[in-house]
Design a protein around this nucleic acid. Structure first.
Length: 110
DNA sequence: GCGGTGACGGTCG
DNA sequence: CCGACCGCCACCG
């Protein structure tokens, strides 16, 4: 199968659309978002897309964490904020600063 | 146009 | 269970 070419803007839009589907109080992983956005295996690009996000854009970016259930952002770079935002939604972190994906992981519906 | 970089993930030891 | 490595790709200088 050959992958069909798609405009970058569309990819970003798709990523943001998927992130917006993550319900409050739940979290999704970069890989999960990538897969649902139609670019499986490109979790890194999801991170890049979110990085390019601006405060004005209505996207619950804080609900996206890495596969380990931890915040990928460096604390200095906004990781603290992300954690606080999630805790406000009811998401709990363990002593190692990780989220139990079994409890708070978003189960996307096809 | 090229090379380094990064909001990751799967695998291995 | 945890840390270290490598692979992937779009972006930026």
């Amino acid at each position: 199968m050959q992958r069909e070419p798609r405009p970058k803007s569309t990819t970003y839009t798709r990523i943001y659309a998927v992130v917006r589907r993550v319900p409050r109080g739940r979290v999704a992983t970069y890989g999960q978002i990538a897969k649902l956005a139609g670019i499986p295996g490109h979790a890194r690009q999801v991170g890049y897309a979110l990085h390019a996000l601006t405060p004005a854009t209505a996207v619950p970016w804080q609900r996206v964490v890495n596969a380990a259930g931890a915040i990928s952002l460096r604390p200095m770079n906004g990781g603290i904020s992300q954690r606080l935002l999630l805790e406000k939604e009811g998401v709990r972190f363990d002593a190692r600063g990780r989220i139990s994906l079994r409890s708070f992981g978003w189960r996307a519906r096809a």
